[in-house]
Amino acid sequence: MSLPADNAPASRQAGVHEESRPSLAALLIDPSFWADWASVVGLVGLVILFGVTSPVFLSVANMQAILLAAAILVVLSIGQTFVVATSGIDLSLAASVMLGAVILGLIHAAGLGIFAACVLAVLATSAIGLMNGLLITAGRIPDFVVTLGTLSGITGLGLILSGGEPTMVGSTFLLKLASGYLGPFGYPVWVAIAAVLVAHVALYHTRFGVHLLATGGQAESASALGIRTNRVKIAAYTISGFCAGIASILLVARIGSAEPQINTSLLLNSVAAVVLGGVSLFGGRASILGPAIGALMLTALVNGLTLLSVSAFYQPLAVGVIVVLAALIMRYQK
């Protein structure tokens, strides 16, 4: 079928203006440009600052250390990004990492082999994400309440399964994963890079990505257009759980044991990285590079402050200041 093109009223000049790229100067005075690039600006600022004040900061070894240290947070921020893009939040993220680690440790200790242990850990955390998604959509319970409940539930589950005891995981595979290098980067960094690439393609180059943003933007409109918004949300939480599983493998590899302890700073920093990355907490607007760079920035911040011998008391303060500043800048985001 053709469209009414021939006799459409032609009294007004029809059509779409050619896209014009704004000039660089115009960009530089536009606050929303800075808002979009807050994490990059922050990272560059920190690198310059610490590079000048600490001779070790810019050394290759320290750069590698920062990247290695950031890998877990990058993976988690990606998971959190998918959830936040649907205008939700996953408060159970760090607890899932703990549970994944505990399951990995127990299965490895049971002698089922490290690969089975890793796969089952990821399956378990993905299942938690799936459950979060189902409770939020089918159960119609607010995301905040559900993931808070899961947080508590899996904290208990982790303690019960582990008996509160850490489990040693002496696996050569994990040791290699944690300490091996391929080219300039350690394996965990490659894992994070791969996660960034896959997530970026999923968000920007697939139907799922568009539907995710539509769901986060205006769920009702999206569903009126036939998008299964509930499925999209469930998928987002499952992805978040999957990322928690990957992070738990990296975590166990890094510290050599599976501990039933929750690292709350991982949760807080994942949300902070998402905010720094310019992702709207109201949903509908997201990127992957932004949060990844946000995670890198938070890691570089702690690294630099440590090198400068800034007391540990001041470090959370610095992180807090930066995150609030970023949120302030975000107000300029149009």
Partner: peptide, 28 residues
């Protein structure tokens, strides 16, 4: 009607996106 955060083109093709198949993947 429309999703504010998406572009005009994304809105016009929402849930009817044109994809290219690359092996098992369908990319926009």
């Amino acid at each position: 009607a429309l999703i504010d955060e998406l572009t005009v083109a994304q809105n016009l093709f929402l849930n009817r996106e044109i994809v290219r198949r690359i092996g098992p993947f369908a990319l926009l």
